[in-house]
Amino acid sequence: MSYINKSVSINGTEKDFIKAFANELTSADNKITCETDIDAEFANEDSSHIITIIFDVNNCYKIKLIRAVAINRATYQYNIQTVINNVDTSSAALYFLGVSKGVTDIATRTFNFMLISNDSTVVMLFGDYNGVLPAINNSSLMSYHEQNFNIVAYSNSINTIASKSEFIRTDENHKGEIYKTTNRLRYSRDENVEIIESKPLVQNNIAVHDMKNVYDCSNVLAGNILIIDNNRFFAIDSNTLIKIKE
């Protein structure tokens, strides 16, 4: 699948829940893998150990899911953090429950995530147990992948979208270069939608690369799925469509 809006909810221990969440996220797209032995993380006998689950996305960047407190303390929270070029970015809180629980307590814990992807693009949104995606999200990511061209943008501001953030390049020869998108069709077409079958990346107001399977469009309602010429698109923001791979 390339469009998933999933509520991962498990009644069991915290390890049961985290394993279920990791399985759903890695099953959503084969670009995402889990690097962590989750059983070993929860079996750590150091009472000060902070459980950390690491996901790799297409060898481009990593996502860390970090327990808010040590393994011997109760909590209702993990923090989600993006690692870009081996640098930890700021984190966002994700709440799996409204009350604190210990790791072995039996309870119903829930995370919400969305994933929209095609051959070159991955978009992810994460939300609390009681949030409704995409309207309410705590963290979002967008990455774009071509041979020798990999970029990622993230946002840890509540209800903002990564597509409007800076994109950071991660492939070796141009690591750390910064790009932004630009909107070429910032107007409405009544009930119709006009599209350009690429989205430009700019540096210093100069277009330097066109993203494929990411489309510029006239104003649309963000968060919706659109059908255009029998193809499905997700509106990640009001002027950007992600083509959904069938």
Rank of each mutant, 00 (worst) to 15 (best):
H49R: 04
A92Q: 10
T75I: 07
L25P: 10
E45P: 08
Y95C: 05
D37L: 03
G98Q: 03
I84A: 04
Q81L: 11
A93I: 04
T82Y: 12
I50D: 01
Q77E: 15
F96Y: 14
T89V: 04
V87W: 00
T52Q: 13
L65P: 10
A28Y: 08
D105Y: 02
I71N: 08
I66M: 06
A68M: 07
I63V: 14
A28Q: 06
Y95I: 07
L94R: 01
V99D: 07
I32K: 12
V87T: 13
R73C: 05
C34N: 10
D56N: 15
K101R: 09
H49Y: 13
N79S: 09
D56K: 11
E35N: 12
V69M: 02
N85C: 13
T82P: 12
I80G: 13
K62T: 09
E45I: 05
S91A: 14
I53R: 00
I66E: 09
T52M: 08
T75G: 10
C60Q: 14
V99T: 09
N30V: 09
I32V: 14
S48P: 00
V57W: 07
T89W: 02
N59D: 15
Y76C: 15
K62N: 13
T36Y: 02
I50V: 14
I32Q: 09
A93M: 01
I54N: 09
I54S: 08
S100H: 03
T104K: 02
N30W: 02
L94T: 05
S27A: 13
I71C: 06
G102Y: 04
L65M: 10
V87S: 12
T82W: 07
N79L: 10
L97R: 00
G102T: 11
D46Y: 03
C34P: 06
L25V: 15
N44V: 02
N79C: 06
A68Y: 10
N85S: 10
I51G: 06
E24S: 13
K62P: 02
A93P: 07
D39T: 08
C60K: 11
Y61G: 03
C34Q: 04
Y76I: 04
D56Y: 01
V99W: 02
S48K: 10
L25K: 01
I63L: 15
K101T: 09
L65V: 13
D105W: 00
H49A: 05
A68K: 13
A74S: 14
I63K: 05
N30R: 12
D105E: 06
R67M: 03
F55G: 07
L94M: 10
N58W: 13
F55N: 08
V103C: 06
D39E: 04
T104W: 00
I51F: 04
A68E: 10
R73P: 00
I32G: 08
K62I: 11
F96D: 01
Q81N: 14
V69A: 02
E24P: 03
T33Q: 14
N59T: 14
T75P: 06
G102I: 03
V103P: 00
T26K: 12
N85T: 13
I71L: 08
L94C: 03
D39Q: 03
D37N: 12
N44E: 02
A74D: 12
T33D: 13
